[in-house]
Design a binder for these strands. Sequence first.
DNA 1: GCAGACTTGGAAACCGCTTTCCTGGGAGGT
DNA 2: ACCTCCCAGGAAAGCGGTTTCCAAGTCTGC
Lengths: 330, 330
Amino acid sequence: MVTLEDVAKQAGVSLATASRVLNGSTRQVGAALRARVEQAADELGYRANIAAQTLARGASNVIGIVVHDLTDPYFAALADGAMRAAATEGLLVMVGTTHRDPEQEIAYVATLNAQRVRAVLLVGSRVADPAVTGRLRGELARYQAGGGRAACVGQDLLGVDTVAPANRLGAAELARALADLGHTRFAVLAGPPHLVTAADRCAGFVEALEELGLPAPQVIHGPFDRDGGYAAASQAGGATCVFAVNDVMAVGALAAYRERGVRVPDDVSVAGFDDIVTLRDHVPALATVRLPLKDMGARALELALGEGDPVVVEQVAGEVVLRESVRRMT
Amino acid sequence: MVTLEDVAKQAGVSLATASRVLNGSTRQVGAALRARVEQAADELGYRANIAAQTLARGASNVIGIVVHDLTDPYFAALADGAMRAAATEGLLVMVGTTHRDPEQEIAYVATLNAQRVRAVLLVGSRVADPAVTGRLRGELARYQAGGGRAACVGQDLLGVDTVAPANRLGAAELARALADLGHTRFAVLAGPPHLVTAADRCAGFVEALEELGLPAPQVIHGPFDRDGGYAAASQAGGATCVFAVNDVMAVGALAAYRERGVRVPDDVSVAGFDDIVTLRDHVPALATVRLPLKDMGARALELALGEGDPVVVEQVAGEVVLRESVRRMT
DNA sequence: GCAGACTTGGAAACCGCTTTCCTGGGAGGT
DNA sequence: ACCTCCCAGGAAAGCGGTTTCCAAGTCTGC
């Protein structure tokens, strides 16, 4: 591997000069020397050793993003938003997937801390486990104590800058919209009780129905993914409208109904949450609550990078979008 | 930030001993000292500085993955496969997205080289531009000259270990399967002519039809994504069966037909390529050629990490899967 | 009881780059 | 002409680890 010293030697200049020419410095270097250095670097095929730069500068140009599952379009969209924002800042991105294991999340924060990344983004729902959350907070605190910056997309439970989707509110608005269509008997495919995102959406929905004076919906717990939706849908009976707490689950539910010959929306209405872009061509088109995922990812990165001495928490509103998968009761 | 020296001082041992205890060495350290060091590290909240380790060891524990677009489930699946494999090896992953810009791809290789990553994975179709390919090869060669390892998922055009989907073959088999159903008039939504993956699939399909003595299909070029499929479908006329060179385009095509009131498969059959998992609940279910994307990603990482003095190129066969989106002609 | 072979701990060189501090020389002012 | 001031260039001190090389024990086996 060719080093800066090789380049300096070849160009007949000092290490300092070579460094100043090649790796961006405030100091000026004379045109003649500059040219010699650049030529030497080119001839030798010099590539700066970033590990050395990071060590010397005491600051790296990479950020870390921790998501649950990259193949879930929800996280892909969020990550993509953050990555685009990072690219415009000239930052590299290290991505970690936890596959929904909170321990992995904690471990990643430790690892990213060791990497001295500029910022870490924790993307995805928190879990309702004070012990785990506490340990994660501890790890984050340690990271931040060393000058690291962090932000989160999800719930404001970590004491860091947060982009928080208005899950409760969105679900409540959805409930009201569905009630407006004349539905009265609901079921909620509620996901796992310990997942805060799932729980919030479920709670918002249930509370809104209560306020409207409607009967409490049937709440069915299960996994937060497509198969969870599929399985939960099979247990729902008697409801004219089913709310799956995310789009992917809703798609699973639709699949279950299709297989059983239950027509959507004729026999049952189905709504989801998130408005996953990849699903826009699904048939029937899915009623949902739209979240600006890319923007949220990008915004989270901004927050992490920004000064923000006081921790900032930004609520992001969702927008109810009714589509073919729901119908008006006559 | 607490350093190893702080730990050593607190534990009353030398830097060398502290290093050996905390950061994995072949050398033994006595139980007493080991305990003291570990306690000190714990009390101080020590986290090794990986940049320093990388510099000293001359080897990093991160790999780079370069994909076109993370929100495209095709790449997400491939990347996920590679990332899982990386995780089992204890490697961290740096992900770069090029958004289909070959220049970006080259730039990423340079950057990852600067990072001295252990290996880089280039995931996605090559482009049919000798100049660009040449520059990419040059950058890769430079990286490999420095001890870097590389692999590619796509076409064997880079002179590195490659996992190559059998695009031609898969498309040919698909063509035969569709011909078996009695179709004779085909259209191909062919994607961009310069994208090798798209071109290969198109060519395989066209050749197979020719061998069967069937009339040449209408070939419609356009973008390689959902909207490209949507637009291309609108231009196809007279065919009873349409082959979109990837699933995402096929979904776009289905959307276009739906909007125009063209029934699939009654009026026209539609097939794709890839068998994207996220699309399994699409209606109508998409006939396609299944590629084991996760395995391919994982395999590419293995290849990159393996010895492999001779460059190895692995063909991965696709499996034709006929589903509701195609019908038998009577 | 002692030579030789292992072990364990520490000192210090080194990884590749940044940056502070110093030096010499030219420009500008009087 | 003389003195300052400023600026380009270089020497060298880190940045935080790893690892080689030594020295000093500690075991063996005879």
